[in-house]
Amino acid sequence: MPGGTIGSERFDEFRELHAQGLGRNAIAREMGFAPVMVSRTAEHLGLTFDRSQIQAAADARRADVEERRSILAERFVTIAEDCLDRIYQPATVYSFGGKDNTYEEHEFDEAPVAERVKFLTGAAIAVDKSLKLAPPQESSGLDAAKSMLGSLGEALTAFSRAEDEREQQSEGDEG
């Protein structure tokens, strides 16, 4: 028996759990061994684990994470819009101070410059984060260029044919 495998007295139990379709980690938990020992034992016994379920689970996790990133990116865009909207809304500026630590506030028709800078900074950060989470689809414009060139080629061909027909008609009129 090679080193690092489960004892031969438990091979039957191992084969039975494997036949039930349990994965490596489930067998390790059930039998109380490290996953690496389960892998070595499976290799020793000529058994393999179906990885299609693992691949499907990994693909599903990737899709879930991608969706969550997209949702976060959307939330960052909403935050950016909110920051920019607040620049032109009435704003209350307040402070605590003085020897008596008094509260003072002042209402403005729109945010003061210092607050505008904070809102703009917040919006810029939110947009930056949204673009990192969900970059825009890159477009090289190649399809548009091909379409334009195709249309131009068709127009030149039509013009050339019309000119050829006109020349043939004028030659026919002369002869």
Rank of each mutant, 00 (worst) to 15 (best):
Q55E: 14
R40W: 03
D50K: 03
E74N: 13
T157P: 01
A63S: 11
L22S: 01
P35M: 01
F49D: 01
D109E: 15
E43V: 09
S70K: 13
M31W: 03
K118Q: 11
D82C: 09
M148V: 13
L152E: 14
V65P: 00
A126Q: 04
A42F: 03
N101M: 09
R24P: 01
L17Y: 14
E43F: 06
A126N: 07
E74H: 12
G23L: 06
G98Y: 09
D173C: 04
F11E: 13
S130F: 09
A155H: 08
A155I: 09
F76E: 15
V65S: 00
G153R: 13
L17K: 07
D12M: 10
V77I: 15
I6M: 13
T41D: 00
N25S: 11
Y94P: 03
A134C: 05
R62S: 12
H18S: 14
R40A: 06
L120C: 12
V117S: 08
P135Q: 02
L120R: 02
S95Q: 04
R62D: 15
E115Q: 11
T92Y: 07
V65L: 14
S140E: 12
V77G: 00
V38R: 05
Q168M: 11
R62K: 12
A123D: 01
F33G: 01
S140P: 06
E174K: 13
A56T: 08
S160M: 08
D164V: 10
S140K: 10
P35N: 05
